[in-house]
Amino acid sequence: MQQQKTITQATRQKKLHKPLFITAAAITLLPFISTPVALLLGIGLAQTIGNPYQQLTRKLTHWLLQLSVIGLGFGMNAHNALKAGREGFLLTIASISTTLLLGWLLSKIFRIDKHTSHLISSGTAICGGSAIAAIAPVVKANEKQLSVALGIIFLLNSVALFLFPVLGHMLHLSQTQFGLWSAIAIHDTSSVVGAASKYGDEALQVATTVKLSRALWIIPVALITSLLFRTKGATIKIPWFIGLFVVAMLMNTFLPIQQISPILTGSAKTGLSLTLFLIGANLTREMLRGIGWKPLLQGVLLWAFISISALMVILQLH
């Protein structure tokens, strides 16, 4: 009788999980909810009730992030973006190549599975989850290898979203300096945009432009990966949304759309809050438990390397 009562209570609680999750997601759409708060709310739900829509939210996160990034283009100036892109170009090449090389070296030292290690290195070097999703089919990674790499990247992204703005203010970084640093040192585009928007509008413009130009390196890295792993018939996903972001930026610069631009960028920032909520909601206990300490250590060391080295170069050059 007591066992039956316990089962009934558990069933009732599970029925409440879905409406509770939907309500929390709706709250993140409110204008006063910041991106860090949205992320924290998602993580809190993941660690308590779990994610009742795990498969759906993974797909939705991917599309929502891309649409949000395109929307942010309507708030940017092409001339300023071109200048920011030029400033970050050499830093991008140097940081990507050294991070991938260090990742390979760490995989040998810690004896980490080469597929998992390469996914973590690619995610750290280029653009987080987007790079991992693009490289995974090239190396023919299995579900376990993919989930470990994504778990580490999303976990470190969550820390970066809170940590980087605090460090930026402590170090008295300018808007340009912080924009460059966050674009290079924070893995995922969502956390880059979230951290930079918290720091300031100029930082947001620099960070978004540099990060998206960095994301284009998915293509050459994927091609080199297919040669190194000798993968025949590998499919390479091209980040098409970057082209639409450029179109949106050009429209905002050269067309008289100043009246609707704030509406579009405001909607994009709201979409970004929801995106970060969904990313947090995917950091479930099961995902965190399945990571393993060696891949996590590799991810942390790579992140520390790219963060410190990029900051030192930026402080010297800017």
Rank of each mutant, 00 (worst) to 15 (best):
I7W: 04
K83N: 14
Q9F: 11
L255D: 07
I314N: 12
A133V: 01
G299H: 04
G73R: 10
G85H: 02
S190W: 00
L161M: 12
A268G: 09
L41A: 08
S68Y: 06
I263D: 00
I224N: 08
Q2H: 15
G290Y: 03
K5G: 00
H187E: 03
G194E: 01
T92G: 01
H118M: 14
E87H: 09
T231M: 11
L228W: 14
G129Y: 01
T270A: 14
I279E: 03
K5D: 02
T124W: 06
I242E: 04
F110T: 09
V139M: 05
L102F: 15
A136E: 10
H62A: 07
L180Q: 12
L91C: 00
L264D: 01
G266H: 08
L278A: 10
R214E: 04
I135R: 07
L100A: 13
P262H: 08
K294R: 13
A185Y: 04
A141G: 01
L41Y: 01
G200Q: 04
H172W: 10
T225V: 12
L20D: 00
L16C: 09
T208I: 10
A304I: 12
G73W: 08
L91G: 10
F162Q: 07
M251N: 03
K18P: 00
V139N: 05
V210G: 07
T225I: 11
A24M: 08
A81I: 04
F245M: 05
Q54I: 07
F305M: 08
V138T: 11
F21Y: 11
G151H: 03
T124P: 02
V148S: 05
L64H: 03
A94T: 05
S197G: 13
H187N: 12
G73E: 08
K14A: 15
A215E: 14
I153K: 02
I120Y: 07
